[in-house]
Design a binder for these strands. Structure first.
Lengths: 208, 208
DNA sequence: TAGATTGTTAATCGATTAACAATC
DNA sequence: TAGATTGTTAATCGATTAACAATC
């Protein structure tokens, strides 16, 4: 158990470990060695052991890892049992698609409210989530601890909303706009840049 | 101009360069130095010069880079002028959100058709794109060169569809499912794993 | 016990940063 | 010309892989 500074490379692999362990667990697999997991995931066994050693000792010599308990440990590290609260800003097509399709709960999040500017949407309930007027954002945030805001608004208003969210103490922004948000270091930003992703694929098909 | 093996780290930065140069270009900026670009993007000037040198010599000593021509060069590297053809599989919420909101054209892609299994959708036109029966996928692909398939289907059918797409010679799959697809190396896969992304954010808000 | 597999230390590999001669 | 800034080589830093003693 070191826990000094864990590199982002390691952190970004944790969800993949978690997902693979979930699948193994559902399939009824009880134990797995780093070697077996490595070949299933296409990485080296050494890397798996090295990664896990950043957080503790979860294995047993001569045996491997108990799938279910390792899954639970990694879930703990990722915070899936923290009861994180989320809101969503911008109930347009993408926002609604996330509300209706994405399983916030399996990531340990509770989506509590959505915000929009459109009078046609305000007051409605989408996928069980009430749509509120974004004008009341600060009032809402003052009354409800909010860990993450999902940002699915048009580009031009993204930065200003990010500022307001950070100002109100929201811990993280899940950014689906193509804007690179500037916020204080107290608010984390995780980008989902569709265009960057597609352009990377565009490059890959020209080569390989 | 080396062009031996360009690392994925470099490739994944190219779309960011491209995006920033687009913004500079739109703002009317004519020239920029690696130093100025680096401070705008929060990386080192050295890295920018090193990255670009993988593909050629685009700058001028004592001057810097011409914004518009560097933008065009990087666009060329990424393939935005190749007239890439795309199809979309799964015209559910997420698929429709992409069709209606995502600007395929600014990435140099033309979305030519969508496929679904639902009789209620087949035959419709969404965002100017015809929805076809997925049963006719192979027939379509035989008649239309297709560079990329956007995969927005439910998890359980994703792998089988990926197999069919690879089999039919589709160059790349833009994968929005939470499945890790197994396809031959001739087909590139670019994953957009929402859950992994949110879990990473979940970790980040627990720390910093 | 013998075989298997961990956690960790050391070795290697690759990516980032710094330095600088070339030159606009 | 003098100042600025490139492209590239060398130095540093960090991440991945290999090796192995510890031990179940």
């Amino acid at each position: 158990m070191k826990r000094e500074k864990v590199s982002t490379a390691v952190i970004r692999r944790l969800p993949r470990y978690y997902r693979n362990l979930e699948e193994l667990s559902e399939a009824g697999t009880v134990r797995i060695s780093s070697k077996a997991l490595s070949s299933a995931m296409g990485i080296t066994a050494s890397q798996i052991r090295q990664d896990l050693s950043c957080f503790g000792e979860f294995g047993l010599q001569g045996y491997g890892y108990n799938v279910e308990s390792l899954r639970r440990e990694i879930g703990e590290i990722l915070g899936v049992n923290r009861g994180h609260r989320a809101i969503l800003l911008g109930a347009g097509n993408l926002g609604r698609a996330l509300m209706e399709n994405f399983h916030f709960q399996s990531c340990g999040f509770l989506l509590e409210a959505a915000f929009d500017v459109s009078p046609a949407l305000i007051g409605q309930t989408l996928a069980g989530v009430p749509v509120l007027d974004v004008a009341g954002l600060e009032e809402y945030l003052a009354a409800h601890r909010t860990d993450v805001a999902v940002l699915t608004v048009p580009g031009p208003v993204a930065q200003e909303l990010a500022r307001r969210l950070a100002q109100a103490g929201v811990g993280g922004i899940w950014n689906f706009t193509n804007i690179e948000l500037a916020v204080p270091a107290t608010t984390a930003v995780e980008n989902v840049h569709f265009a960057d992703s597609l352009l990377t694929l565009s490059y890959m098909i020209l080569k390989g």
